[in-house]
Amino acid sequence: MHVLLVNHAPIPVFAYGGTERVIWDLGRALVQMGHRVSYLVPEGSHCDFAQVLPIRPGLSWAEQVPADVDVVHFQFNPKEDIGRPFLVTEHGNGRDPDPLALNTVFVSRNHAERHGSQRFVHNGLDWQAYGPVDFGRARGHHHFLGKAAWRVKNVKGAIRVAALAGVELDVLGGTRLNLRRGFRFTWSPRVHFFGMVGGQQKFDLLNASSGLILPVRWHEPFGLAVIESLYFGCPVFATPYGALPELVPEGCGTLSSSASALAEAVRGWQGDRRACHAHVLERFSAGAMARGYLQCYEQVLAGEPLNAQRPHMAGSAFDQAWKE
C-alpha cells in the first residue's frame, strides 16, 4: 500500500513537534511493515525512509496527490473532495462548529465521543528513539511538560501543586517571565524553567524526574507529554479530563481536579517506575498506532465510511474545573 501523509508543518521534528513527531513515527512504522510512504509537507523537509514532496501553494490538494498513491492521510481537514480515498486525523480541540470530514479519525476514545464518533487511533511513538531509561538514577525534581503560555495547560496550577507538595519543579516548555497573557513572573527559586526543549535535552530531563505534574484545564485530545513521561518511569499527577484516564492506569499516577489532592499524591506515591514504562511500551508504540491506521486505510479503500455521519463538536473542551 502507498500512503501519502499530508501536514502543514515541516519534517523532521524540530524542538517538541507533536503532530510532526507522530506522523514521522507512523511513517517509519508503516515502512517497516512493508508499505510505501510519502510525505506532502512544506518545502525544506527531508526524510531518509520515505519520499518527500513539497506542498505547492496555489494548487488544490487533488492536484498535488501522485497518481500511484492508494490512500491520502491528512493531519487537518482539507475541506475539499480530492476525488481519491482519504481520511483525516483530527489532532486538536477546535472551536469550529462545522462538521468534520466523514472519514475523520480521532486520537482517543474521549476525543471521538466528544465529536459523536467512535473512530479513534491512539497516538504511539517510536520508543527506540528515546533511548534507555535509568531506573536507578536519583530523581530530585518533578516536571511540567507542555506549552506553558497556553492557559489550558495550567502551568500556574502545576507550580501550586509542587509548592503544596514541597517539591522542586522543572518547567519544560515555558519561561520565568511570560507576557503573552498579561504579566506573569515566577519568583520561586524552586521552579526551574528550560524553555521549549526537545531531543536529548528533553530525554535527559525526563530521565531525572520524579514525576509529571500536568493539571490541564481542558479535555486533552491525547497527551504525548503523558506517555513520554511514563516511558521514563515518571508517574503522572494530572486532572481527569479528556484522554487522560485512558493513558494513566491505576498505579501509574493520580488524576484529580484538586491541587491539594494532587499534592498529597505527589508526596505519597510509592508505585513502580518499571510498570509505568512497561505500560506505554505495550499500549502506545508506533507499531500499535500503525496497525490501527492500517485498519482505517483498508476500510476507506473498500469504500466504507469511517463514520455513519460527519462528526462535529458537542460542547466546549475548555475551562474545566480546577480547585486551588
Rank of each mutant, 00 (worst) to 15 (best):
H2Q: 14
L5E: 10
N7A: 13
P10V: 06
T19I: 15
E20N: 08
I23N: 00
D25C: 11
G27S: 04
V31D: 00
H35A: 13
S38I: 05
Y39C: 00
L40P: 03
L40A: 00
G44P: 12
S45R: 03
Q51T: 15
V52P: 04
G58P: 10
S60Q: 03
W61V: 06
A62N: 07
E63P: 06
V65N: 01
P66G: 01
F76P: 05
P78F: 10
P85N: 04
P85A: 08
P85R: 03
T89D: 02
E90F: 05
D98T: 14
P99M: 05
A101T: 08
T104W: 04
V105H: 04
A112K: 02
R114C: 09
H115G: 11
Q118S: 13
A138W: 02
R139D: 07
G140C: 09
G140R: 13
L145M: 07
G146S: 10
A149M: 07
W150M: 15
K153I: 12
V155F: 11
K156S: 12
K156I: 08
G157E: 06
A158R: 04
L164R: 14
L164F: 07
A165K: 00
G173M: 10
R176M: 05
R180W: 13
R181P: 01
R184W: 07
F185S: 06
R190W: 07
H192R: 15
G195L: 15
M196Q: 13
G199A: 02
G199S: 02
Q201R: 14
G211T: 11
I213S: 08
V216G: 03
V216N: 13
W218P: 14
W218M: 10
E220R: 11
V226A: 01
E228P: 14
E228A: 07
S229I: 05
L230P: 07
L230D: 03
Y231F: 13
F232Q: 02
G233K: 11
A238K: 04
T239F: 11
G242N: 01
A243M: 04
L244S: 13
E250Q: 13
G251L: 07
G253F: 00
G253Y: 02
A259K: 00
R267D: 00
W269H: 15
Q270N: 14
Q270M: 05
G271D: 10
R274Q: 14
R274H: 13
R274N: 09
H279N: 12
L281P: 11
F284C: 14
S285K: 07
A286W: 00
G287W: 01
A288Y: 01
A290K: 08
R291M: 11
G292D: 05
Y293L: 10
C296G: 01
V300Q: 05
G303Y: 12
E304H: 09
N307Y: 04
N307P: 08
H312D: 00
H312F: 06
M313T: 05
M313N: 03
A314R: 15
A314L: 09
A314M: 07
A314W: 04
A317G: 12
Q320A: 12
A321F: 10
W322M: 08
K323M: 08
